[in-house]
Design a protein around this nucleic acid. Structure first.
Length: 287
DNA sequence: CTGGGGAGGGGGCCC
DNA sequence: AGGGCCCCCTCCCCA
């Protein structure tokens, strides 16, 4: 499975050269825990000393967020057991499911961008101060009759409501961001980061060839390459395409308009990529 | 070198 | 709130 993102170290507006990256990927190691090629190996699962990500304070990254194994994430982790929320029941003491961890871990993300030092975080225990002080340190404050986000001061009746707000709605103060460990990309909200993480975890897998994709509709389009289905037909030449974007590009050939013009030689191209290639290769070649 | 098709990524909007 | 969809974009490959 191509995991070329693993060697992507700097954000760029351009997609990396996957073929080139593939050769670099082959030189990297595989996760000792699951065997999958990953940017940084899964925490070692040494018997007797289980080092778990949620037991240590670490910067919030996309490798610390999806705490499940890559396989479990790809297959779709089950929802949280209601009993695990209080740290009791059959799952007590075990790693929480990803959605629950994301929600609860985020309580202290905006202020510190760290995960709690132990799981489950039980308010008012462990000598970490009064619950209210703790909440404040975690990016929340207890308002009369409820909880309040210390960033936008929006009141919530329940801690869960506040958690959901901070997870997906409340953006971080200027200068704060959720950073993806895989590629150093930064996002203003955890929701955006979680969506980005899908481009790394690639949870949508083709049953025919095993190729993985970040989104279901990408997989849907890929499946058409197996079935040969081409639902998008050109009204000019009746040529069919499997992808709407490619039909759109094809329509440009009928339009006859070349709206992308080289600033140096004034040569026009129908597609921006053609202009870019022209500028890089011939007109104004780089060093 | 250019034109064009195939395939895929990512952000944003809508339901 | 989350998934589906759309749009725009890019890269790769081949003629």
């Amino acid at each position: 499975m191509p995991r070329s993102f693993l060697v992507k170290t700097h954000p760029s507006h351009r997609v990396p050269n996957y073929r080139q990256l593939e050769t670099q990927r082959e030189a990297s190691g595989a996760c000792s825990a699951c065997g999958e090629l990953v940017g940084s190996p899964c925490p070692p699962s040494t018997p007797g000393d289980p080092v778990q990500p949620w037991n240590s304070t670490s910067a919030i990254t996309c490798t610390s967020l999806p705490l499940l194994s890559h396989q479990e994430e790809a297959l779709g982790a089950p929802g949280p057991d209601p009993q695990e929320i209080n740290g009791v029941g059959p799952r007590a003491g075990r790693a929480p499911s990803a959605p629950l961890r994301d929600s609860l871990n985020h309580l202290n993300l905006p202020s510190l961008l760290v995960l709690p030092t132990r799981w489950p975080p039980i308010l008012g225990q462990d000598g970490d101060g009064a619950p209210e002080e703790r909440l404040r340190a975690e990016g929340t404050s207890q308002a009369p009759g409820g909880f309040k986000c210390i960033h936008c001061h929006k009141p919530y009746h329940t801690l869960a409501g506040l958690a959901r707000h901070q997870q997906l709605r409340c953006h971080l103060p200027a200068g704060r961001a959720f950073t993806c460990r895989y590629c150093d990309k930064e996002y203003a909200s955890l929701g955006a980061l979680k969506m980005h993480i899908r481009t790394h975890t690639l949870p949508c897998i083709c049953k025919v060839c095993g190729k993985a994709f970040s989104r279901p509709w990408l997989l849907q389009g890929h499946i058409r390459t197996h079935t040969g289905e081409k639902p998008y037909t050109c009204t000019h030449c009746s040529r069919a395409f499997a992808d709407r974007s490619n039909l759109r590009a094809h329509l440009q050939t009928h339009a006859g308009t070349k709206k992308y013009q080289c600033k140096l030689c004034s040569k026009a191209f129908s597609r921006m990529s053609l202009l870019a290639r022209h500028e890089e290769a011939t007109c104004c070649p780089g060093p």
